[in-house]
Design a protein around this nucleic acid. Structure first.
Length: 480
RNA sequence: GGUCCCAUCGUCUAGAGGCCUAGGACACCGCCCUCUCACGGCGGUGACACGGGUUCAAAUCCCGUUGGGACUACCA
């Protein structure tokens, strides 16, 4: 095992919001860095001028922070290898592919789009086994003065092995890889090329990414090889070392299809808005494709110590909202009440509810029986407003029959000044004992009078959080 | 079509030849606890895709079949 420091990166394209698959990729890379004392880097891959937008970059970084991830180098914090946005690194790419052109590991191609389309159509029609660029300009020796052109990699003969951390040895025949384009006619370099340039320059040692990139890997390895040729006598000497790759299985929708809006929310932000805690998101994401024995609950600290790339599975997993919700319900109860209350505040505000005098107690009793912050906020309605849902049928069936009990409770509670849970419990208990009535006969009618329905938090909690005035008011209304 | 990846309960997974009449978790069902709900506890339904090998022994290794998926761009 090498002792050189681990340097990993998460390289999002700012063409949309942070997706759950991307979040998991970021998480695993971050864990690898944090566990080994290495560095975690954010690099923005914005070479698609059409689709890249700065506000997406801001949103992605925001979601990563919300999850609790931090980075040692990135577009917002800088670092020794700045800049960290690919569009700001153009001269570098330019220099590198110019060198490749000089070395002959890449070549100019002036094939028109029409020619390429025709070629493709022809291959399709002939049901050709091997498709792709036919090498038309490969040996044309086109110079810089050839007019509009792309730059293609000259793929050598032989085969390329990917020694994958997760999949093991994967072999590709170079003959199956076409001479792909690395630079567009306008000089904008393409993904596979810039990734390699940056990973080399930034000293990336490990790359954990989605399975969809496994097929890109031989192409990238070929670029490493080409760059290694260019390295002789340049500043690249000794630095062109491919990282260790690890390709993680994809996250699919529950029905096995690709995740999309049609079969569930795909963005991290959507789950945040659904009232999922970042701790739960991390916990669930980590368990998707990774495991540690039978353990289900992991704090971020647990993950930081237990995570290993070897624990990552090979088969794709499906996104199960039910399980996420269960994990979330665990964190609803495990987090400090103040933390949950603070997070719940945003959901209360969205409903137009200003601070409640006993808000932490309110959240403390509701989080025991709700699984998300949205569920909690919905359940909190009875504490914030008189405009809550009452089950008229239940009220009609319960209240009139319990008139005497309710009257008695109102009397004793009216005489109770100390509105703490303890005091309330003593008062109600005492009343039950002196009148020889079981608590069960009392609690339900009182709950119905207070909440307008059969279910709710504990009786004394409800009374306490409601407050003396509101509680007595609702009880009185029930016997009026 | 081609290249590559994958295959244990409905879902997430444990399992790295004998510990497996396959374990845990979610969901579902029943019981218990209990002021309701929830939590918690106990129990139940439920899986090694199929076919060949290798081996004294296979969920575990090999081959094939089938089934999923990724890629197949002058996107990333």
């Amino acid at each position: 095992m090498s002792s050189s420091p681990v340097r990993v990166r998460f390289a999002p394209s700012p063409t949309g919001n942070l997706h759950i698959g991307g979040a998991r990729t970021a998480l695993f890379n971050w864990l690898l860095a944090r566990k080994t004392g290495g560095q975690f880097i954010i690099r923005v891959e914005d070479t698609d001028a059409e689709r890249s937008k700065r506000h997406f970059e801001d949103a992605i970084l925001g979601e990563l922070r919300w999850l609790g991830l931090d980075w040692d180098e990135g577009p917002d914090v800088g670092g020794p290898h700045a800049p960290y946005r690919q569009t700001e690194r153009m001269e570098r790419y330019n220099a590198l592919y110019t060198q490749m052109l000089k070395d002959g590991t890449a070549y100019r191609c002036t094939c028109s789009e029409e020619r390429l389309n025709a070629l493709r159509a022809d291959q399709e029609a002939q049901k050709a086994a091997r498709r792709g660029y036919d090498g038309h300009c490969r040996d044309a020796g086109l110079g810089a003065d050839c007019g509009p052109h792309v730059v293609r990699l000259r793929v050598p003969e032989g085969e390329t092995h990917v020694d994958d951390l997760i999949k093991g040895d994967v072999c590709f025949a170079n003959a199956d890889i076409e001479d792909f384009v690395i630079v567009r006619p306008d000089g904008m370099p393409m993904y596979n090329f810039v990734v390699v340039c940056d990973d080399v320059d930034m000293g990336i040692t490990h790359v954990l990414r989605g399975d969809e990139h496994l097929i890109n890997t031989p192409k990238q390895l070929l670029i490493y090889a080409a760059l290694a040729t260019a390295a002789a006598g340049s500043d690249l000497v000794g630095t062109v070392v491919p990282p260790r790759f690890g390709h993680m299985p994809l996250i699919l929708a529950l029905d096995g299809s690709k995740m999309s809006k049609r079969n569930g929310e795909t963005s991290v932000g959507a789950y945040r808005e659904l009232g999922i805690h970042p701790e739960a998101m991390m916990n669930y994401l980590a368990r998707l494709g990774w495991s540690h024995g039978d353990q289900e609950i992991f704090s971020v600290d647990d993950l930081r110590t237990l995570f290993t790339a070897e624990g990552i599975g090979k088969s794709p997993s499906k996104w199960d909202m039910e399980k996420l919700t269960w994990v979330n319900s665990h964190w609803m109860r495990a987090l400090p009440a103040e933390t949950v209350a603070l997070r719940a505040r945003a959901f209360f505000e969205a409903r137009g509810w200003s601070a409640h005098p006993r808000e932490v107690a309110l959240v403390a009793c509701l989080r025991e029986r709700t699984r998300t912050l949205v569920e909690l906020a919905d359940a909190a309605r009875i504490f914030f407003t008189e405009d809550y849902v009452r089950d008229e049928a239940v009220m009609a069936a319960t209240l009139p029959a319990a008139r005497d009990v309710l009257t008695g409770v109102v009397t004793v509670l009216s005489a109770t000044e100390d509105w703490s849970e303890k005091s309330l419990e003593a008062a109600v208990h005492g009343w039950c004992e002196t009148n020889g009535i079981k608590l069960g006969k009392v609690a339900q009618p009182v709950r119905v009078a207070l909440c307008g329905q059969k279910v709710g938090p504990g009786l004394y909690q409800t009374l306490h959080v409601l407050g003396r005035e509101v509680a007595l008011q609702r009880l009185q209304a029930a016997i009026a």
